[in-house]
């Protein structure tokens, strides 16, 4: 079967292409050399240099706060929108509603970023709010982006779950709110968690939209990293990469252990 071998080799080559840069980035974080991606003996010096870099640490903490807030808002808005699209039937304006919630999925980042910035400037001119642009404006922009993804995840999950369960609860006298809380919510909880995580990651990863809508006091980690990469690579970038890759890896390992199917 020459074809089977070709397909397997191509798959392995593709995965290697995806992983090799990341693995090398992490490996050379432990090199003492001042030049990134040069081996100069094992050392943890770049991790202490990273920890001492106040600008980056501050930006990282700010990014985590923005991502958590944006993801939470995104789950509320996207969850409501996904629920409406999956369960409310043909309500008035459904087509426009669906197009608006899905728009950030297909718009180029520079378009989303520029148009949201122009909105914030226009709002400030008209109402005095928001005063300048900083953390809050980035959070609102990221929530809008995240909500689009959450809505897709929730709508797909609700389409798979049996609607008659909610109807049965209401037939048995539950108010719509009680039916939602006791029947629907537990069913879509994993999708809500997945949506939150997706929105959180998107926020942590975004540099373009944040650069447009942020201000002097709102430098996120990707913005700081982008500024660093523009000037040239330093081994601190390797150290940051190692922290993030190993951190994400550890979180996933814990999640896999917790979600492992039980035997018996």
């Amino acid at each position: 079967m020459t074809r089977g071998r070709f397909v397997r080799a191509a798959l392995m080559a593709g995965l290697l292409f995806l992983w090799l840069p990341i693995l090398l980035l992490v490996a050379y974080a432990f090199s003492a050399d001042r030049i990134p991606f040069q081996w100069g003996g094992f050392s943890l010096r770049w991790f202490s240099a990273l920890a001492a870099n106040e600008r980056l640490v501050e930006a990282a903490l700010l990014s985590l706060r923005i991502a958590a807030g944006a993801a939470t808002l995104a789950v509320l808005i996207g969850g409501a929108a996904g629920w409406a699209l999956a369960r409310f039937g043909p309500f008035r304006g459904r087509g426009v509603f669906g197009a608006l919630i899905g728009a950030p999925l297909v718009l180029p980042e520079v378009v989303t970023g520029l148009s949201l910035l122009l909105l914030f400037v226009a709002l400030e001119t008209a109402t005095g709010w928001p005063q300048g642009r900083d953390v809050l404006t980035v959070l609102l922009a990221h929530a809008t982006l995240g909500a689009a993804f959450v809505a897709v995840v929730i709508q797909a999950r609700l389409a798979e779950t049996d609607r008659s369960l909610e109807e049965a609860a209401m037939d048995l006298g539950a108010t719509p709110f009680t039916a939602f809380r006791t029947v629907t919510l537990p069913l879509i909880a994993p999708a809500l968690a997945a949506g939150w995580l997706l929105a959180f990651t998107l926020s942590l990863d975004d540099v373009v939209i944040a650069s447009f809508v942020s201000g002097p006091s709102g430098t996120t980690l990707p913005m700081a990293l982008f500024a660093m990469l523009r000037l040239g690579l330093t081994p601190e970038v390797n150290a940051l990469g190692a922290v993030i890759v190993l951190g994400v890896g550890a979180m996933l390992a814990v999640a896999a252990l917790l979600l492992r199917p039980r035997r018996g």
Binding site: L15, W19, P36, T201, D205, P222, L225, V248, L252
Partner: peptide
């Protein structure tokens, strides 16, 4: 294995490629 690189950060992957492809890379 296919989707995990997505979770490691877009800019870090760009940084990794810069480290591989530079003149002194």
């Amino acid at each position: 294995l296919l989707m995990l690189p997505f979770w490691t950060g877009f800019l870090l992957r760009v940084g990794a490629w810069i480290g591989l492809l530079r003149d002194e890379g």
